[in-house]
């Protein structure tokens, strides 16, 4: 049996005592196969970014993590700092939301793209040649000259391409994309996504794509996980999510999204998204849910398999949200 590229099993992350006694993500399980694009969707406080960052061993300060977290079979939680650094350099890399906040403005683009290569022992000449190829593959014109330029000389969309080039430098098998296009204009978003998905397919990388935009996740990904208040509430194929959303939160999100092809005005979900630390006992969504029954606030619903979808809702069998 081949090992999965990314396997998260029952991951729980607790903040350092004193900040909040309760966990910020609870019992999260998800996986990404080699070459597969997987979406992780949620609103503010859902824990989607914490989950994504945990894959590289990046936890909030003083946080405690428990559960299984493996990249290609190697356990992240017990990994030595040296091995973890190697993993971030070579096996798995992250594309962050705001390139302007994540790329050192005082250093040249070339330094940024070659940093990992140089650290793993590639010669300066070799690293620069490789960086030039990478910049070219993400559509930066005159890549040789671009290596000598500074971040402020690039637009947001161009700088995000530079970040993608940097993320690809070590030849990773796993890409973690944390809202990589949220800060971009819609047409720029399309361009960056086309570059990202092309390279992902060409290089047969697995990708965990974190976003608040269900439509975007469904357009890019094969499977989508939906998170709410630190837990996964639904997982299914992108297709199924739209045609047969199973969790009331998923259908609420779909109904709230303004749509071009529909006359139905977007319909808000009452209340506001909560984080796990604010969530009441039982189902965290119950307070906002039109289908909640008294039982919903008593037991925390676990994920159950229903018709190929995984749903954490006590009433999942009765409710189908077409």
């Amino acid at each position: 049996m081949t090992t999965r590229l990314l396997e998260i099993e029952n991951l729980t992350v607790r903040l350092a005592a004193g900040q909040a006694a309760r966990p910020i993500i609870d019992g999260v399980s998800l996986h990404v196969e080699h070459g597969e694009a997987v979406g992780l969707v949620g609103e503010s406080g859902s824990g989607k970014s914490v989950t994504c960052r945990s894959v590289l061993g990046l936890f909030p300060e003083g946080a405690e993590a428990a559960g299984g977290l493996r990249v290609d079979g190697a356990d992240i939680l017990t990994m030595s700092p040296t091995r973890l650094r190697d993993l971030r350099r070579r096996d798995a890399s992250m594309i962050f939301q705001d390139p302007r906040a994540s790329i050192n403005p005082l250093r040249r683009i070339g330094d940024f793209v070659t940093e990992g290569l140089r650290a793993s022992g590639v010669s300066r000449k070799g690293a620069l040649d490789r960086a030039e190829e990478l910049l070219e593959s993400v559509g930066i014109r005159a890549p040789r000259a671009a290596l000598r330029r500074y971040p402020h000389e690039f637009s947001g969309g161009m700088l995000q391409r530079v970040m993608i080039a940097g993320a690809l430098a070590g030849g990773p098998r796993l890409l973690l994309a944390d809202e990589p296009t949220t800060a971009l204009d819609v047409t720029t978003q399309a361009e960056v996504v086309s570059i990202l998905t092309r390279l992902q397919a060409e290089r047969d990388m697995g990708m965990l794509f974190v976003t608040h935009d269900l439509e975007l996740a469904a357009a890019i990904c094969d499977r989508v996980y939906v998170m709410y208040a630190g837990r996964i509430v639904e997982a299914q194929s992108a297709e199924g999510l739209f045609s047969r959303p199973r969790h009331p939160y998923t259908s609420g999100l779909l109904a709230a999204t303004p749509r071009l092809e529909s006359d139905r005005p977007p319909h808000g979900v009452p209340g506001r998204p909560v984080s796990l630390s604010e969530a009441p006992s039982g189902c965290a969504f119950a307070a906002r849910c039109a289908h909640a029954r008294p039982g919903c606030t008593e037991h925390e619903p676990g994920l159950r398999e229903i018709d190929g979808a995984q749903v954490a809702c006590l009433r999942a069998e009765e409710l189908i949200h077409d």
């Binding site: 819609v186 399309a190 570059i195 935009d213 357009a219």
Partner: peptide, 21 residues
């Protein structure tokens, strides 16, 4: 048209949008 096509949806073809842009 480009703005309209750029909205993510199922069957979305970002490569074509990039070319149109």
């Amino acid at each position: 048209r480009l703005l309209l096509h750029s909205l993510p949806h199922r069957g979305w073809d970002p490569a074509r949008i990039a070319a149109d842009r």
